[in-house]
């Protein structure tokens, strides 16, 4: 399987994602510079975390105009797997591939911590190696992860089961107390209608090896690999 990690000026988790795909998952991976205009030959794309263009205007707001983005949107429309992590999630929102918007964290402070997520579905290309209602442990690091959408969109996300991850306690109990940023309905990650584009604030690439204190994130990348293997066989 061949992954592409899109590099925007200011991306800073690009090398971390590259490392996990290449050294841990053992798959092919390239960096794709944001000035490219094609994404041919890739089976999945990663929009990594960081501060594209410094996030000076609004997170992801400038990156969405990068020359690569039309190709990314086309890739998504054709059913290609895309995972946007942190800043990547923010860019997916700005690009209109996912609904809603990001607000500053409820605390108005950057937060770096380990949180717990409840897995809402295990029948998606991103979660098939996880178990529904399972609690996973994963790091977050962001200043604007307070996901927001209007009531109609939220109802749609819920109806269409597009919320893949919500913040919860270590024992799986959902409550604002365990939500690090104040996001609506404790949302940590959502997909598009077709289910091939995932945006999530937590960083699976930061918990894909034992030495970093956990491997729940690895299971997300491994799910993508297994989904691809099934489709391509």
């Amino acid at each position: 399987m061949k992954f592409g990690v899109v590099v925007f000026p200011g991306s800073n988790c690009d090398a971390d994602c590259y490392h996990v795909i290449k050294e841990v998952l053992g798959q092919e991976v390239d960096y794709i510079w944001h000035k490219e205009i094609a994404v041919q030959g890739y089976d999945a794309l990663i929009l990594p975390g960081g501060f594209s263009y410094g996030d000076y205007l609004r997170t992801g707001a400038i990156a969405r105009f990068s020359p690569i983005m039309p190709a990314v949107i086309e890739f998504a429309n054709q059913g290609g797997l895309i995972i946007g992590i942190c800043n990547g999630f923010q860019i997916l929102l700005e690009a209109g591939l996912l609904p809603g918007a990001m607000l500053r964290n409820r605390s108005l402070k950057f937060i770096c911590d380990k949180v717990h997520l409840q897995v809402k579905r295990d029948d998606t290309p991103f979660t098939r190696l996880l178990k529904q209602d399972e609690t996973i442990s994963i790091p977050v690091a962001h200043g604007e992860g307070n996901y927001f959408c209007d009531a109609e969109t939220l109802a749609e996300l819920q109806r269409e089961k597009r919320i893949l991850f919500t913040y919860c306690s270590p024992s799986g109990e959902e409550d604002m107390v365990f939500n690090p940023n104040g996001s609506i309905a404790n949302i940590a990650g959502i997909t598009n209608k077709q289910g091939n584009v995932l945006g999530m604030m937590p960083h699976p690439e930061r918990c894909s090896e034992h030495i970093l204190g956990g491997t729940d994130g690895y299971r997300i990348f491994a799910s993508m690999l297994q989904s691809w293997q099934e489709v391509s066989c």
Binding site: D16, G49, F110, C112, A141, E205, R206, E209, L212, G213
Partner: peptide
């Protein structure tokens, strides 16, 4: 204090 610092980016931090 330190929760306002990203102490894990680069995925090398083995003792936080």
């Amino acid at each position: 204090i330190f929760s306002q610092y990203d102490y894990q980016v680069m995925t090398n931090t083995a003792l936080i």
